[in-house]
Design a protein around this nucleic acid. Sequence first.
DNA 1: TCTTGACCTTAAGTCGACTTGAACTTGTAG
DNA 2: CTACAAGTTCAAGTCGACTTAAGGTCAAGA
Lengths: 138, 138
Amino acid sequence: MKLLDISEVARQSGVAASALRHYEEKGLIHSAGRRGLKRLFGPEVLDQLAVIRLGKAAGFSLEEIKGMFGPDGRPSLSRPVLRTKADDLDDQIARMTSLRDMIRHVADCPAPRHIECPKFQKLIRISARRSAVKPSKF
Amino acid sequence: MKLLDISEVARQSGVAASALRHYEEKGLIHSAGRRGLKRLFGPEVLDQLAVIRLGKAAGFSLEEIKGMFGPDGRPSLSRPVLRTKADDLDDQIARMTSLRDMIRHVADCPAPRHIECPKFQKLIRISARRSAVKPSKF
DNA sequence: TCTTGACCTTAAGTCGACTTGAACTTGTAG
DNA sequence: CTACAAGTTCAAGTCGACTTAAGGTCAAGA
């Protein structure tokens, strides 16, 4: 039963100790106990931190991430809610793909003002339509 | 030459008037002039706002978005930098795809604690490896 | 001409996610 | 036994992206 102190968790996860305390305070992670004052974490916290990192990269708030993976790693959301989250992600992935295409286009297209390039406009319109249809996040 | 007042831009774009002023202050958009005190915007601002919305959804800061599409819609970044941004986006898309898969798995897998499900762990490890290899954003 | 409502400016406030600072505690090495 | 590095708590600060409040301006309609 190898327990890790906070600096070890910080080192292995790349998450600052202050952030780890913050996550614990917010209930996203839990220490397995203390040695004196010092927190000790079980190794599973590293996986949990990977999920947190991922969730953040995907644009979820700590509160949402906490909701997704419950107090102790168990998912606390119902299947339909999770499916909705997954669909939101699909949406966001589509947006990001649009933006990526747009940026690649800008990098390659010789037009001086991209806002006037028909292809660029088409890309914009596509994404604008998407957000018009489903403005869930705005 | 149809110019739009701020509330019309807000209505058509779904962006709050206060946010539009904020964007102008930060140099992301520009008003075409004034009628009295009141800002008038050219219609191209709507496309610019679509780009801004997209960039935000993709996790870029206003500063970065401004950098990507320059003061007046022209790209101010060099091609290599843009290509790097596009690659970052590919990366982030991959992360989000991982998370989506993870969430869908959680929604479907009957295991009580997903952190202990081998498939789930595999998904986590994959994403953890990705961020270990390229910790650009952390 | 007068009123009104939409817009203006500036400053301050808010929110999330941390970070930083100050003062305190403790297991462990010397 | 003592010193000290590494932790601790709690409060306050920071940063980005806005929003809100307070007070001011002005084009247009009655």
